[in-house]
Every structure is written in C-alpha cells, then in structure tokens.
Amino acid sequence: MSEAGYTPPSATATASPIAELRGVTKRFGEVLAADDLNLSIRAGEFLSFLGPSGCGKTTALRMLAGFETPTSGEVRLDGAVVNTLEPYRRPVNMVFQHYALFPHLTVAQNIGYGLRQRRPKPPRAEIDRKVRSALEIVRLDGFEGRRIWEMSGGQQQRVALARAIVNEPKLLLLDEPMAALDRKLRKEMQIELQNIQRRLGITFILVTHDQEEALSMSDRICIMRDGRIVQTGAPRELYDQPRNRYVAGFVGTSNFFDGAVTGLDGGTARVAIRDGIVLAGRALAPVAAGQAVSVSIRPEQIRLVRAAAGGETGWPVSILNRIFLGEHTEYLVKHESLGEFMVLTPRQAELSDGPFNAGEQLTAVWDAGSALVLDKD
C-alpha cells in the first residue's frame, strides 16, 4: 500500500502488530533525538515510554502521530509505512500535556470538534450521539453546556480524553497528560484511564517521566535513554530483572554498591566493594572476574533489626533520618564502609517491632538472593 492514504488491515492481518518502529532515527540538525528505534506495539495493550527529559520518548510519540517525520527507518501502522502520511489521515488521536482545548467552545463542542471536521461531515444526530457516549465513558454526563474555564483540571483532562476517543482511534497517544494534576487526582485518573482502556480495547501509548505512573498503568514499559530504547518489558520484569544499573535506578528505587567481581559460583557473583567487604548477588547477565559492576538492593528488601538472628549476616548501621509516610517508613542509614543507603519498613513491621529513631544503632539484614549484580552502564 502507498502512503497516499490509510487502509485498515484485512481480517487475516489482525495478529500483526498494530504499530511498529523499524530502525527509526530522528535528527534535528546535529541533535540526535531518536537513534535506531525498534519496537512492535500490540493491539489493545497499554504501553508506556518512560525516561528522563530529552531521552527521545516524546519524539517517538510524535513520529507515531505524524507530527514528526523520521530521518531514516519506517513507522508502520497495521503493516503500512506511514512516514509521510499526514496526522489527520492516521487512525491515531493524541491527548496533549496541556490538553489544547478551545476555551470559547462548550464541552460538547470541544468533544465533537474532530467529528465536525470530517469530510463528508457526519449527520448532526450522529455527532450528538457519539459526543453523549464519550461523555458517559469519561463520566461527565450533564456537562455538555459547560465552558472549559468552568471545569477543574481533572475535568478538563476528561474532556480532552473524550475528544480523543470520540473519533474511535486505533491508537490513543498520551503525552504526559497528568503532569499538571495533584497527586490524589493523578492517582484517580490513572485508575480511570486503565478502566477506559480496558472498556474500549484501544491501544494506549503513554509518555511519562513518572515511574510510578508507568508501573501502575502499563502492560509493557519501554525504557529510553539518550534517544535509544534500553529495555522493554512488563513492569514486574523490569523491576525484578533490570538489564543494567540505569534501568534499576529508573524503575523504582534501589541502593547501589559499586565494586568489582572477585568470583563466580553458578549464577551468583561475589563483588568486592571496599575495606575488604564482599557482597554476593544474582548476576542477571554474564559477568567476568575483575569486571566493574553495581550490586543493587531494593529498600523494601532490607530489614532493620536490633539484633540479628542466628545465621543471619548483617551490617551495623546508624539511622540518619526517618520519614514516616503512613503505610511505610523510609529510613536513611549509614554503614561505615558501605556508606548511606535507604531502607523501607512496612507499617505492620513497625507496629510489632516499634519505630526506630535517628541516631539508633541497628543491624541491616538482607538475603543474598535479593541482591542483583548489574552492569554499571
């Protein structure tokens, strides 16, 4: 098929990826914004691009939308190359970070705007029916006549979402749509977006720098760095089996202890840290003796005890800081040689053992299987 227009796939093609990036590179002059991106996106999944500002995630989203053209490589929708196909001719809609709503139009007029631009224009009764259906989906029934400036931030986001889904796109692209919301409302909208996505079966692609947002909402997460895809996988896979230190540090919180491999025993590596301290951990990828690595341990996998049980290996630490967060408490502790690291203690443990206080001398304990030995790159 040529790029002159978009043709839906045949019934026999439904098993193919709904969208693909094949060797996609994007340059803005001398700036390399996206570098050899290869990704297959499944129909009906919730995929997130996660990474810091400037990593290329928004550029990838804009190339899928048609707002940017790849310098090289192919963007495919339903198997068809769409590199130069105009955005309005793609089965794609986008919800922008600042919503881009029209303040002079009512809620219903904003939602139906895209339908009114179609040629041939649908009958007014059909537009009204689809607008009402979209309002029902985002739970804004009865708000048809409101002006945008009369709506709260969360309500405006729902209007932007309704405007996108009313066109029944195959791909719904979300460019950090919850960045302007407060924490409580953001959590509510995360659940709402998941419910809407499951109800409609539309493929959602989210761009975010918020790891909690990506972990809580996504079927798969695509971690990006410096314009490249570092690792793609399910949230639990990325959390439990990060490819390197960068992924472990960006997906969740982790403590890192740098050193060099001194020995190997099956899948376990021994790592010399400093002052004669050797930590053991699972090596998720092949490592060699002498290789510089990081030992990663999640804060929730460390226990603080006043006295280690028999057979437990512990590290004497002093508490520097205590932050009570309701369901858990975060402790910043310090070991003479390992340095400072974070420990997360669940509320239930504190109720039974009692809280620890700044300045208290304790023992930090973790299982060797909880530690991961990772490439530092």
Rank of each mutant, 00 (worst) to 15 (best):
M1Y: 11
E3N: 12
G5D: 11
T7D: 04
S10K: 15
I18L: 14
I18R: 02
I18D: 03
E20D: 05
R22D: 03
V24P: 02
A33P: 06
A34P: 01
D36T: 12
L37I: 05
S40A: 13
S40D: 15
S53E: 12
G54E: 08
C55S: 15
K57E: 14
K57M: 14
A65W: 05
G73S: 02
D78C: 07
D78A: 08
G79C: 04
V82M: 10
V82K: 08
L85R: 07
M94R: 02
V95R: 09
V107P: 04
L115C: 09
R118E: 15
A125D: 15
R132K: 14
E136Y: 01
E144V: 03
W149Q: 11
Q155P: 03
Q156K: 11
I165L: 11
A180M: 01
K184M: 12
L185F: 06
G201E: 08
G201H: 12
T208M: 14
E212L: 10
E213R: 02
L215E: 11
S216V: 10
D219M: 05
C222A: 13
C222R: 01
M224P: 01
R225G: 01
L238E: 01
P242A: 01
G249Q: 08
G259E: 09
G263T: 14
D265R: 14
A269S: 13
A272P: 00
I273T: 04
D275C: 06
I277R: 15
A280N: 15
R282L: 10
A289W: 00
Q291N: 00
A292Q: 13
A307F: 03
G310C: 01
G310W: 11
G314C: 10
L332G: 05
H335G: 00
G339S: 10
M342K: 10
D353T: 00
P355W: 11
E360Q: 09
W366K: 09
S370Q: 12
S370M: 06
L374Y: 09
D375L: 08
K376S: 15
